[in-house]
Simulated scan of single mutants.
Amino acid sequence: MTQVFGGMCAPSIRSYPVWRLPTYTGRHPSIQGVKLKFIDETCKTQKPLVPSPQVVQHENGFMHVTINVDDPEPLFTQLIRQLKQAILDGHLAPGAQLPSIRQLANDLELNSKTVAKAYRLLERDGVIQSKGYRGTFVHPEARSNCQTDLNQWVNAQIAELIATLKEAGVTDSEIRIAFSNAMNN
């Protein structure tokens, strides 16, 4: 069956309602299990139905996470970007409870290790926080912490160091060996 919306096809796009906002008051998030798969074998264009990755807030209060398995961007990075964007857009307020790793992995049909990696990196960056057996919540300072990209900072620091070393006359192989030695220690 061909799913076409607005003249665009959606091959290999997974879009699932993930959790209800903001009415949750119980112990576990209310997960809505309607799965929408858009696979089009006859469409010749490779444009996604919803430009991926993005978080969409619909009028019925559901947040949709769109994972594009054909995107060269890693799946955990797509998830991180979408959760950060949801926080910046105000769809996820500080203190809001997120689904468990297992539940989100099941709903998105991802490996739980992929979701765990995304959650671990978000927690490292101060975007979310785990509260033991009570669950995972949006960090109170999440909006300001979403603006900080630790990977970008690390890349800038390493590029600056490499430029300094090259100015001093150090060769590329000496730099690689030094970095390898430093990483192994």
Rank of each mutant, 00 (worst) to 15 (best):
P29D: 01
P29G: 00
I31Q: 02
I31S: 05
V34K: 03
K35F: 11
F38E: 06
F38Q: 08
I39F: 09
I39N: 12
D40Q: 10
D40W: 02
E41W: 08
E41I: 09
E41T: 07
T42D: 14
C43I: 05
K44T: 15
T45N: 13
K47N: 13
K47Q: 14
K47E: 15
P48V: 05
P48D: 09
L49F: 13
L49H: 07
L49S: 07
V50W: 11
P51C: 05
S52R: 08
P53K: 03
Q54W: 01
V56H: 12
H58I: 10
E59N: 10
E59P: 05
F62E: 15
H64I: 12
T66L: 14
T66Q: 05
N68C: 02
V69S: 10
D70L: 12
D70W: 10
D71N: 14
D71K: 01
D71T: 04
D71C: 05
P72Y: 03
E73N: 08
E73W: 02
E73S: 09
P74Q: 12
P74G: 04
F76D: 11
F76T: 00
T77S: 11
T77V: 15
T77I: 15
Q78T: 07
R81A: 11
R81G: 04
Q82T: 03
Q82P: 05
Q82G: 03
L83G: 01
I87L: 01
I87A: 00
L88I: 12
L88C: 05
